[in-house]
Each structure stands twice: as structure tokens, then as C-alpha cells.
Computed example of a mutant assay.
Amino acid sequence: MARLRISEIFHSLQGETSAMGRPATFVRLTGCPLRCQYCDSAYAFHGGMWMELEEILTQVQERAGQLVVVTGGEPLAQVGVHELLKVLCDAGREVYLETSGALSVRDVDPRVVKILDIKTPGSAESEKNDWENLQYLHAQDQVKFVLCNRSDYEWARDFLREHPLPAKEILFSPSYGELDLHDLAEWILVDQLPVRLQVQLHKWIWGDVPGH
């Protein structure tokens, strides 16, 4: 069985996606090949502890709730994450995978809901987008754009007009502390975009505090 380097496992509310507000168990993996300028989990770039799959599953099962969110860092940077996702699905959990979009999602278990982040120019990592990932999206999956400014918004808007996506939800999220929520809402309404405006609910509740 695989071993994975885990930054933390904790219980909280899912702060983003269509599952926003639902209690969930988060499994945060250590390591990420990207350095987005707005990253709020840089503490997970290093450290953590090696854990066997059985130990991870035990800790997940000790926490209430059906939803499990596998996140990072970048969880796909560890090869063993695919086995973890399968084990969690086999255990009857509803599993979400939050990924940067820089690494291939081709081999992700089809039972997993993929939350694919398309990096905008304002992230300072847009050149890392793996565009082949778009062909591996399913109707259950969700695509997220974190927007830093008006230029990012227009970039994402034009991208959607040129590349229709099969994902269930298209999420537009303002970069925390960078883009005014009111402005983003107005732009979406003016352009009549078929997207979901989302905020990071956990930050509205607890602030920019790790482990929430």
C-alpha cells in the first residue's frame, strides 16, 4: 500500500465549490510545484508526516460527515494519491479532489468530483496550466477561476466563450483581499455569464487561519 506525506487532516466546513457550507473532512497533502502569488496554504509546501493509507482512512472515519476533500499543496504531486482516492471511494465516501490544473487528472478515479483550478495571469502561474486536462472533465466536475483583477476576469470570460466546458459548475472566485466582491458580481451580471460566484466561506468565518 502507498504512503503519503500528509500536512494535516481536519474537520471543517467546505468553504468553496457547490458543496460550500457542508461539513467535510479535509486531507491536505504536502508539496506543490506551483507558487501562486495568492497561495493561502504555503505552509503545506514542506513538512508534514508520512502516513500509511490505513492510518489516513482511520482518521477520516473518526470524523463525522460523508464528504471528504483531498487537497494540498497539490495532491496529484504524490503518485500515491490515486490509491488514496480509490480507497476513500471504496469506503463509501463522497470524495472531492482540489487540484491546481498543472498536473494530469487523466487517471483520477471517475467516482471523484474534480475541482480543477485554471490559473489566470494574475496568479503568476498561468503558464503551468495543463490544457489536456479539459478533455478529462466530466459533468460532475467543477472548474474554478481565482480572479485577481478586471484583467483576470476578462481573460476568464473570454476563455469560457471560446472553450465550452462540460463541467457541472464554473466557479468565479475573487482572490481574497485583492478583488472587490461587489465589482465581480456586477461584471458577471452585465456579461450574463453562466457561472457561480463563490467566496471562501471559511475565511469569512475564521479569517485567514490554517486548518479551517
Rank of each mutant, 00 (worst) to 15 (best):
R93Q: 14
K168R: 13
L53Y: 11
G80T: 07
P121R: 11
V195T: 06
P210I: 09
V143C: 10
E54S: 14
A139M: 04
K203G: 05
M20H: 07
L103H: 02
V105Q: 10
R161W: 15
Y176H: 13
Q59D: 11
D141K: 03
A156G: 07
V195Q: 09
S151P: 00
E8Q: 15
W131M: 13
L103S: 05
P75D: 11
M49V: 12
H11M: 02
A2Q: 15
R161E: 01
F45D: 05
N149A: 06
L29R: 00
Y153P: 02
T120G: 05
H212Y: 11
H138V: 00
N149W: 01
S175A: 13
R157G: 08
D117A: 11
V195R: 13
V143W: 06
R161C: 08
T25I: 02
M20E: 04
V143L: 12
Y38W: 15
M49W: 09
A19H: 14
L57I: 15
G72C: 02
L34H: 03
V112H: 01
S7D: 11
E54C: 02
D180Q: 15
K114S: 05
I205D: 03
H163T: 12
L88G: 06
F10M: 03
E132A: 14
L160H: 08
G177H: 12
C36D: 03
D40P: 09
V79H: 08
L179P: 01
V146G: 05
S18K: 00
L4P: 00
E52V: 07
L76M: 08
Q14S: 12
E83F: 10
E127Y: 12
G211V: 05
C148Y: 14
I170T: 11
G92R: 01
A156E: 10
S100Y: 08
S18G: 02
W206C: 00
Y176Q: 10
Y136Q: 10
A19N: 10
Q14F: 08
D158Y: 13
Q66F: 01
V81D: 00
L57Y: 14
S104L: 13
S126A: 15
L29T: 00
A91G: 11
K168G: 15
K128T: 13
L29Y: 00
E74R: 05
D208S: 10
A42G: 07
A124Y: 12
V79A: 12
V69D: 04
A156P: 05
R35V: 06
T120E: 07
L85N: 06
N129E: 04
V81W: 02
T25M: 07
Q140D: 09
Q142P: 03
G47E: 02
V60N: 03
L53V: 08
R150F: 15
E132R: 14
E127S: 14
F26M: 07
L103C: 01
Q59A: 01
I205C: 03
Y43F: 14
R28M: 08
G15F: 05
P210M: 04
R28V: 03
A139H: 14
K144C: 04
C89Y: 08
P75L: 04
C148H: 14
L193I: 04
F26Q: 04
Q59R: 11
Q192A: 12
V105T: 15
L4M: 04
V60E: 05
V69S: 08
G72S: 01
E127T: 13
E62L: 12
R3Y: 08
Q37P: 00
L189Y: 04
V108N: 02
A64C: 10
D109Q: 06
L165S: 10
R196Q: 13
Q37H: 03
P33T: 11
E8M: 04
Q66G: 02
